[in-house]
Simulated assay, not measured.
Amino acid sequence: MNFRACFVLLAALVCLASPALAKTPVIGVNQFVEHPALDAILKGFQDDLKENGVVVEYKVYNAQGNVSTTNQIANQITDDDPVLVLAIATPSAQAQVAATRKNAHMAEVPIIFSGITDPIGAGLVTNLEQPTANVTGVSNQMPMDKHVAMIKRFMPDMKALGVLYNAGEANSVSNVRRLKAAAEAQGIELIEATVANSSEVTQAAKSLVGKVQAMYVPTDNTVVSNIETVVKVAEESKTPFFCADTDSVRRGAIAAVGLDYYEHGKQTGEMARRILAGAKPQDTPVEFQKTLQFYFNPKAAQRMGLQVPQEIVESADVIIGE
Rank of each mutant, 00 (worst) to 15 (best):
Y262C: 08
H105K: 10
E235W: 05
L208P: 03
Y216V: 01
L128S: 01
A5G: 07
E51V: 07
D247W: 14
D48F: 09
V33I: 14
V173I: 04
S237L: 02
M144E: 13
L42P: 12
A17K: 04
Y61W: 01
V233Q: 00
L306H: 04
A149T: 07
N226P: 15
R101V: 03
I77W: 06
A149G: 15
I188E: 02
Q96M: 02
V313Q: 12
F32V: 10
Q76G: 05
N171Q: 05
Q46W: 14
T239F: 05
I120Q: 06
A301K: 02
A133T: 13
I151S: 10
D80L: 09
E184V: 01
M304R: 07
Y165Q: 01
E311K: 09
N71C: 09
L164W: 01
C243T: 14
Q130I: 08
A133G: 15
E129C: 01
I88F: 03
E263V: 15
R273G: 03
T229E: 15
K232D: 09
D81W: 14
Y262A: 13
E189A: 11
V257F: 09
F113I: 00
H264G: 11
G278C: 06
V26P: 10
E189G: 05
N71E: 00
E236S: 12
Y295E: 04
T117N: 09
A74K: 02
S199C: 05
D145I: 00
N103P: 08
G65I: 00
K152E: 13
V97S: 10
D260S: 12
T239V: 00
S68I: 12
V125Y: 03
L42T: 12
A133Y: 14
S237R: 01
H35Q: 13
D317F: 11
Q282G: 11
Y165H: 06
V173F: 06
V29D: 03
S68C: 10
K266E: 10
E184A: 06
L259D: 15
L42D: 08
L9H: 11
V233R: 06
L21C: 13
G44H: 02
C243I: 13
C6E: 14
V224G: 07
E263C: 07
A277C: 04
A12G: 14
V14P: 12
F242D: 05
V148D: 14
V60Y: 07
S139F: 05
